[in-house]
Amino acid sequence: MKKLTLLPMAAMVGLLFFQGTTKPEVETAPNHLAMSPDMPENIKAIVDQKCYGCHNAESKNEKGKAKLDWDAFEASKKSKQMATKGKIAEVLEKGDMPPAKFLENKPEGKLSEAELATLMEWSAGKKKKTE
């Protein structure tokens, strides 16, 4: 069989597995974070240092901004915040954040074990009623 006749078929089959991917953009200078007053200080500190660089309203990392914007988080409703925290817990559990590609260029961006535990407890924990 001639190779040429296989090419279109191979291309078609190949197309089935094609998935659009976006290249992560590395964000270097984190801006200052102004977050909701009800967020615990220790959480704010970690987020400011390790997450906010990409996850903010002015981020050039479009995907990061679309997935989570800490500036918007502050202003969002309780139900939205609960959903967002649930997703954060999931991503942290899987070890997907900060992204491995990002850490290649910026290994110091990695969450320490203590930071990870703190963030996971905050994001996964059921909110406590204060009143």
Partner: peptide
């Protein structure tokens, strides 16, 4: 409950976009 919230939030974002 949290999963339902996450999924509704995803529905919102995916459909809106």
């Amino acid at each position: 409950m949290i999963e339902q919230l996450e999924k509704l939030d995803d529905i919102y974002l995916e459909v809106e976009a």
